[in-house]
Design a protein around this nucleic acid. Structure first.
Lengths: 203, 203
DNA sequence: TGAAATGTTAACCGAACGGCAACAAGATAC
DNA sequence: GTATCTTGTTGCCGTTCGGTTAACATTTCA
């Protein structure tokens, strides 16, 4: 069982790996968690190793690896569609077919991901319409500017842009001028995940 | 596992090969990485060889070759993500987890489908942003109101809403007030497909 | 009150990095 | 062919930075 900060550490490492395709430095984890001491961070990492969440290549910088917890045991999915290049939605340009593929598996699969259907138009200025699906990465922390699923007062879930204010409060900002941003103390807001993808089908 | 500078070296070599169609000199790599000593660079190259990223033709200048890392697996099909219900993007509502799944394969796979990357913002009012991908169903006809990939005068491809006018002409209508619709006789417009889906990833 | 979780400081060690120099091996000029 | 230049190879050195460990302080909670 992980303690709170151990969980935060694991989340941060996962997040970092997703974004950078390499493991973070201990100092980067420390900074990300708001810890001054690398020694403290090191202890958390050691706890994660002891409990089998991650492994490490001893003595190497960035020597952290996640251990796949594939209890699901489904094989690697990959839905590939032919990729035909770019098309201008602005002006008319020549269509240049490109003999490659894009893999929806690569785009959307990942650990701890789930899908929500969006209801309402408050994110319309970010081109997320009512009826769209969003792919969420479940995590407890997020960065300034991320689109997050936030639980307010342990009761109300909402999809908003997260702004982290200097005074420690958080602002949940809709992307629609008809709605007003809400600013709350951090302890009333629980991040449940960040948006990593969005999809829509047309009838 | 590559160290940071080893990765930089590999990136540089890849880049150089792309641009010049020949391998770089060690001195060129050094310069590119901001290293004075060729000996240092040579050590990085040796590390890349040892780890199987590149091979070399010994004793030859520019004797570097990339080794194809085709660890790709095929076998397509269903990518399922857990579906967690609806969330309000408008007002705050309760999150009701829903224990079902959504299958991207069902949503997007099909006969004669392909993907385009959208460049430009002319469809922004339909919540299709520059950088989004659209899934197209290849077909030669379309209905009034469909978003289509249209080839104009056998030359210019564009993504627009198709309007079929009473007089037999077609109007290609952007979803952006900054752009003007174009009305053309039907024989100058060739429908290449209609949009059946749209996807986007966030960094 | 005592154990667990959290945080800090400081010291130590080795990996990663970079420079220098001597040398070997092709390439080029003559 | 020989001389010379360019390029590649190797070993050795020092510096910096990141990872590790230990000792100690503070907070939380049962």
């Amino acid at each position: 069982m992980l303690t709170e900060r151990q969980q935060d550490t694991l989340d941060f490492i996962r997040n970092y790996l997703n974004e950078h395709n390499k493991a973070p430095l201990i100092s980067e984890i420390s900074k990300g968690l708001g810890i001054v001491s690398q020694g403290t961070t090191h202890r958390y990492i050691q706890a994660l190793v002891d409990q089998g969440y991650i492994e490490r290549l001893v003595g190497r910088t960035r020597g952290l690896r996640l251990i796949d917890d594939n209890t699901e045991s489904d094989e690697t999915f990959s839905l590939k569609l032919p990729y035909m290049g770019k098309v201008a939605a602005g002006r008319l340009i020549e269509a240049v077919p490109d003999e490659s593929e894009i893999d929806l598996g690569d785009m959307f699969s990942g650990k701890d991901r789930f899908v929500l259907k969006v209801n309402g138009d408050s994110m319309i200025d970010k081109a997320i319409m009512s009826g769209d699906y969003v792919v969420m990465q479940a995590q407890l922390t997020a960065n300034h500017g991320d689109i997050v699923l936030a639980l307010v007062d342990f009761h109300d879930a909402t999809l908003k842009t997260l702004l982290i204010n200097d005074d420690g409060t958080l602002t949940l900002q809709p992307a629609n001028d008809n709605y007003d941003p809400v600013t709350l103390p951090a302890d009333r807001v629980m991040i449940q995940g960040v948006v990593v993808g969005q999809l829509r089908t047309y009838p």
